[in-house]
Design a protein around this nucleic acid. Structure first.
Lengths: 327, 327
DNA sequence: TTCGATGACTAGAGCGCTCTAGTTCGAGGT
DNA sequence: ACCTCGAACTAGAGCGCTCTAGTCATCGAA
């Protein structure tokens, strides 16, 4: 049916081992033979079978990735992960977590394929489960901090991000700055810390935490809560861009002008934030840096390197048009 | 290192073949032995190696899926595909296409893993390339129609969707109804046809096609173009929800009230459309139905079934708050 | 008693590769 | 002439499974 290494070897008049040498690109074949084998392989349409390769090699060079299929930011990370893995010779295997496919299933499926390391994007597994997982396979957690950690963590310095955003608002003259909290979402605790620290450092004690979450829906609810508070804050830092969008839609629907009545800052610098008609001031994470660190770390762990410390990537404030001095 | 079938066999005092029988859940083992093997396997933490399994089985039972990592609708389809594949015993393997990873790469990688069939979500490959691919592996194209087709196609009846949306606007009293075109995007041609047909059937000859595309950015541009036309349409059918969002933001920014000044209809019934603060009238596709047909078809093809005709899933109009009678 | 039948289990080849431990051979040194 | 050495190549044993073609009791029927 499908053409194997055997076919190529026969057709080229060499041994299977030789074809293997050529395709692994290791030394042990003359240039002339190399060319002939490649030519024959191309002619027959031969492509090495990855599974057989992995099995024979006695390792997979596969890093498994779990991610939330509906989060745009995870999409960006996935793109960056593939880009980061490409030059290493390692392969990426995706395992989505959805409403109907939980994180455990996603991870197990990666292990069943014998991934040598796994990268979890913003996992919601309890940190005990992460420790257990780490005992089974080198694990790198991205975009979430894990307290008493054994797993590797690669994340944005969310405290710094929230601090920068808060300071930006304060420097515009705002004093009543609210934070739409992310609850138990990855990064929420750090953002809270950064916000609090900046408020304190700025001499602002009107710390206002509005319950929220990572979805546009959470943003809507937070928007309504915000409209009901009095005195109403003049600026708000939303947990992320999606949340900010929901909030924006809600408060604008109630006649609040942004940014003249209310300044809004998002988080993540998602694609929507950059649209001219939205132009959301936000805190950008660096997916490429995060992804690069994550695969580098994952591969290093799989190669037997000792665990290193948590790695933190600095965020950057992107000032657009949803922030202005208070009324 | 990792525990194999051999280990379980030794520990349970049976042959490898017996363990295999138990794990494949085929007959040939007594209930007592089954339980003992399972118990030992659990104790040792044994999980069958998928690659070895696929290799030994001489088939993978793997359906490969390419999708655009940044499209929310593809995310929904991916979720539905996993759900649809679960009861079949087949496995899904994802291969994202991103700005840095083209469709060809994505497909090749699936073939290197010997997927027995591939499902392409809204592929942008030319139909010649699809024919070539189909010659190599059973291929199902989802959410795009392919003209002179050899590949299997599973898609929403986009013409019907556009027609329904247009008729909804007409029945509200609109006569100047514009369509933001999707250009070469999957489904665009059908939606154009449906729109034109509905306009003609409704006796409306003011067909107005505004250039557009599948992204929020395209929607913004279309919004600006729309604001510049005169007489200005009183209703607009956007290529999809993202496009509609961009358009909404732009026209609202220019002081146009929706729906009182302008009615807007989207397409896809994405998560944003359902948010109370957005509440976009839109045309819903049925990801579960599409996914179910796609995997069913993919598996059938892989099992040697003859190609069947294109399969079309009816869309449904979701009326929300962005449509109203004209001013 | 013999003879299938049937159920429970095993031996071992094979899947398409990798990789170690060779073999072969021609060139260069003495 | 002989020896050595390295480059080019090959044999064959895995990797962890599946699955066909058995073997071996046991049991009911003739």
């Amino acid at each position: 049916m499908t053409v194997t290494m055997e076919d190529v070897a026969r057709e080229a008049g060499v041994s299977r081992a030789l074809v293997s040498i050529v395709f692994r690109d290791v030394e042990g074949a003359s240039t002339a033979t190399r060319e002939r084998v490649r030519e024959v392989a191309d002619r027959l349409g031969y492509r090495p079978d990855q599974r057989a390769r992995q099995l024979g090699r006695r390792r997979t060079r596969l890093v498994g990735v779990t991610y939330a299929v509906h989060l745009p930011f995870h999409g960006e990370l996935v793109e960056a992960l593939y880009a980061a893995a490409a030059p290493t010779g390692w392969d990426v295997m995706l395992s989505p977590v959805t409403a109907r496919r939980d994180e455990t299933t996603a991870v197990e499926s990666l292990l069943d394929h014998r991934c040598e390391a796994v990268v979890l994007l913003g996992p919601s597994l309890p940190s005990r489960a992460l420790d257990l997982l780490f005992a089974r396979v080198p694990t790198v957690v991205v975009a979430r901090s894990v307290p008493r950690r054994t797993v590797q963590v690669v994340r944005t310095d969310d405290a710094a991000g929230a601090r920068a955003a808060t300071e930006h608002l304060r420097s515009l003259g705002h004093r009543r700055i609210a934070l739409v909290d992310g609850g138990r979402a990855p990064g929420a605790a750090e953002r809270r810390r950064g916000y609090r620290a900046a408020m304190r450092a700025g001499g602002l004690d009107d710390v206002a935490l509005v319950p929220g979450g990572p979805t546009e829906h959470d943003g809507e609810a937070a928007g309504e809560a915000l409209l009901a508070t009095s005195p109403r804050p003049t600026a708000v830092l939303a947990f992320n861009d999606d949340c900010a969008m929901g909030l924006l839609n809600t408060v604008r629907g109630a006649g609040v002008r942004v940014p003249s009545d209310l300044s809004v800052v998002g988080y993540d610098d998602t694609a929507v934030a950059g649209l001219r008609a939205v132009s959301l001031t936000t805190v950008g994470q660096d997916p490429d840096a995060l992804a690069h660190l994550a695969v580098t770390r994952a591969i290093a762990l799989a190669e037997g390197d000792a665990a290193s410390a948590e790695q933190v990537v600095p965020p950057h404030l992107v000032v657009r048009s949803t922030t202005a001095p208070p009324p």
